[in-house]
Design a protein around this nucleic acid. Structure first.
Lengths: 134, 134
DNA sequence: CAGCATCCACTAAGATACTG
DNA sequence: CAGTATCTTAGTGGATGCTG
């Protein structure tokens, strides 16, 4: 009957809606979405549907394994749809669900900002290097 | 470590503004920003300035090493400001630059969407499990 | 308090090869 | 074409000790 007094260290506190909470759906989704390849894949799919290898070419540098893995994860989270046409050779089209499209929209806005700020970032890096060994 | 001003013998310089291009400033920045801890750190700093350990507590689960490393990277990219007050004990405050604030705003919007969609994601995961062995 | 340095176990990432 | 299986390597995270 003890044990109830402690309120703090609950490993499973998990308010469903706090991104900062460790065992929380939204944080898990946020991490999935903001991971290196997932964000680029969503960004690409925001342009329209892609087949596997086309997407692979679009997202420069991604390995087959990582793309495959990433897409499965995004499908699992309900952000990406996977449509298989069992012809020979097989066709698999990936596209965004409504949720995925919403996410991709925000990522697009972010990417636009960063593209527009590329000079500024490059400059900041230069400065940092210069005063590096402080 | 030898701070020789060596440039990457990279293929070419790439357009500065395409996130999908491999050797491109905006993609590098995008990846930095969308990495696991950086995004959460930016989100936290969007709420206001934080001192190191306070930030560490806010971003649940981050290790000291990763937070330190992440903050350096964000500082390098010109998104985070680091203000040191050399008292005893020392105080170091982290805050967002204007650029960082812009980025954090987009991340906040994304996080809000995902928090609002947490149920939907949980549901999608359930479905995925159910028809798992396709 | 705010860090960096180092060692170590663990996992995620990347390259390559192979299947439906 | 669209992946999975396998092996190797690089990065992550924890613990610990040390500095200012």
């Amino acid at each position: 009957m003890a044990a109830v007094t402690q309120h703090e260290p609950g490993p499973e506190q998990a308010l469903v809606s706090d991104v900062f909470a460790r065992d929380c759906t939204s944080r898990a989704a946020f991490e999935d979405v903001s991971s290196k390849w997932a964000s680029l894949a969503l960004l690409a799919l925001g342009e329209g549907a892609y087949r596997f290898n086309a997407l692979r070419r679009r997202v420069e540098g991604v390995s087959e394994k990582m793309l495959s893995q990433t897409l499965q994860q995004l499908e699992r989270d309900g952000m990406v749809r996977r449509d298989v046409v069992t012809t020979i050779p097989p066709r698999v089209e990936y596209s965004l669900t409504p949720l995925g499209a919403g996410v991709a929209g925000h990522l697009r806005a972010l990417a636009d900002l960063l593209e527009a700020s590329a000079d500024q970032v490059a400059l900041a890096r230069g400065d940092y290097e210069r005063r590096g060994p402080r």
